[in-house]
Every structure is written in structure tokens, then in C-alpha cells.
């Protein structure tokens, strides 16, 4: 029976590939998070629809109508909301992933399991919460006369992938270093505060180009979050407008692959750091 098996070194995993191999456990971890979040509430997951719905109405009335931002940017509420749901997804995913290793310390100290599961599960949970926001956005778009092309829809999927990969990579990195120095939790919070403003979520990208000049704008544009937000404008907001607005040049053919490449590089760096540090998790936690 077992004598056929070889002697192997315990506690040496295959990194992110392990999370795919133990996807049943990953599924249970994600389900646990969702169940725990909505325990004891009657509306349950419905709250995930109510919150972004109200948020959109507030944007529409307060910013679009009262502040008059609709005059400068057509359908300003749709513009703002399509960017902000990506930021919400990224903030929740990275914030939770960075705390996931320390938060599950009790388990990591006792039982060996692929530790990458915890940051990855955090990103999945945020992905589940992203969906209702996307539904609210699509409903708002349809009411504003949305007529997207297939390319725009495919670009939206790619935009989501860019953000999910970036959150996974940074989540692995910060989750691991946070075990050694808890300062990194605060660094992540700081980062997340800056993220909303470092991308054209509330303002329009042309304002940045006009102020910074084209050289610095290229640096600004290389941020994967900026690329993903612009892709969401391109996929959701742009098809609801008269089409006179200026889009960033070469968004789909150059910047989208750049965003994917940067995010993938971050995943590799995150995975590398995680594997270097995980051997001592059990004694440092």
C-alpha cells in the first residue's frame, strides 16, 4: 500500500499551484468568509446589492446634479461608479489579503496547509462582493443608453483580471512581510488611501496629461489600476455618452497588455517573497 510512496520532505509546497490543487479547501474558505460576514442578518447577501445601489444614487444626485459635474463630464455618476467599483474591489482584496496570514496565525502554527490559500481566498471573497456592484453598474448603464461592443466587454473582463492579479501579488507580498513587521498593515492602508487618487476615478485623465506633460503621464499611465479604471470607462461609461469624449490613446492595443504584464510581474515578485519568508511563519506568528 503506502510503501510504494516515496519519502518526501514535509512542509514544502508548490506555491500558487497548490491553491489550484486544493481548490475544494479554497472553496470552503471562501464560503466560510461569506457566511461569517452575513451571519445573523435577514437580508444576507442582498446587502451587497443595497449598499452599492445607494452609493450610486448618492453620486448621481450629490455630485452629478447638485455639484453640476454632469456639465463637465457626461453621465458623471456612471463615470465615477465604473471606476470606483474597481477601487472597492482592489481595496477590499488587498486589505484583507495583507492581514490574512497574521489573522489565520492560529491555524498556520498548528497544521501544515498551502499558506497561499489565505491571501488567494481573500481576493476571491472580494471578487464575490464585486459582482453585485457590477450588476448595479450595468443597470445604471442600461438606463443611460448603454450599447457596448464585444471588444469593450472583453476589455472589461481583462481589466478585472489585471486588478485581481495585482491584488493577489501585492497580497502575497504584504501578507508575508506583515508577519515580521506589523507596520506593513499601516503601509497598506496608506497605499489604499492613495490608490483612489492616483488613478482617474474622480477626475478625467486629460487633466493629468495637461498638468504633468506627456513624459510624466507615461509613468502615471503605467499603473495597472489606472489602466484598468480607464478600460472600465471605455467599456461602461463611454458607450453611454455621445462619443465626443477623448479616450487615452492606444488603451486597448498597448496599455492593456502592459497592465497585464505589470500585474503578472507583481504576482511573481509576491510569490517569490512569500516563498522566501513562509518557512519561518510558524515561529514568527
Amino acid at each position: 500500500m503506502s510503501s510504494v510512496e516515496q519519502l518526501v520532505r514535509p512542509g514544502v509546497g508548490a506555491g500558487l499551484a497548490d491553491t489550484f490543487r486544493s481548490r475544494f479547501l479554497l472553496k470552503l474558505l471562501v464560503r466560510k468568509e461569506l457566511k461569517v460576514r452575513y451571519r445573523g442578518s435577514v437580508l444576507g447577501l442582498l446587502w451587497s446589492y443595497v449598499k452599492p445601489g445607494v452609493q450610486f444614487l448618492v453620486f448621481y444626485l450629490a455630485l452629478g446634479v447638485f455639484l453640476g459635474l454632469n456639465k463637465g463630464t457626461e453621465n458623471y455618476a456612471v463615470y465615477l461608479f465604473s471606476g470606483i467599483i474597481l477601487i472597492n474591489f482592489f481595496s477590499e482584496a488587498l486589505g484583507n489579503a495583507a492581514r490574512s496570514i497574521v489573522g489565520n496565525g492560529g491555524l498556520i502554527k498548528k497544521i501544515y496547509l498551502p499558506r497561499e490559500l489565505f491571501p488567494v481566498a481573500s481576493v476571491w471573497v472580494s471578487g464575490v462582493h464585486f459582482f453585485p456592484q457590477l450588476v448595479v453598474l450595468v443597470v445604471a448603464c442600461v438606463f443611460s443608453g448603454w450599447h457596448p461592443s464585444l471588444l469593450q466587454l472583453a476589455a472589461a473582463v481583462a481589466g478585472f483580471v489585471i486588478v485581481a492579479l495585482l491584488a493577489t501579488g501585492l497580497g502575497l507580498f504584504f501578507g508575508a512581510v506583515n508577519v515580521y513587521f506589523r507596520d506593513f498593515e499601516n503601509i497598506v492602508d496608506l497605499l489604499l488611501m492613495v490608490v483612489t487618487w492616483a488613478s482617474p476615478v474622480l477626475y478625467v485623465w486629460t487633466m493629468v496629461r495637461n498638468t504633468l506633460g506627456s513624459a510624466f503621464f507615461t509613468v502615471y499611465q503605467a499603473n495597472p489600476i489606472t489602466i484598468a479604471v480607464e478600460i472600465y470607462h471605455y467599456a461602461f461609461w463611454y458607450p453611454t455618452t455621445s462619443g465626443t469624449a477623448q479616450l487615452p490613446p492606444h488603451l486597448v492595443e498597448i496599455w492593456l497588455p502592459v497592465g497585464l504584464a505589470v500585474s503578472l510581474a507583481v504576482v511573481f515578485i509576491g510569490q517569490f517573497t512569500f516563498r522566501r519568508l513562509e518557512g519561518r511563519f510558524a515561529q514568527e506568528l
Binding site: G11, V12, Y112, A282
Partner: peptide, 9 residues
């Protein structure tokens, strides 16, 4: 025991 289980290396 933790070394045998793989929790520690």
C-alpha cells in the same frame, strides 16, 4: 512534531 508535520522546516 511540528517539523514532522511540515509546519516548521
Amino acid at each position: 512534531l511540528k517539523h514532522i508535520s511540515g509546519v516548521m522546516t
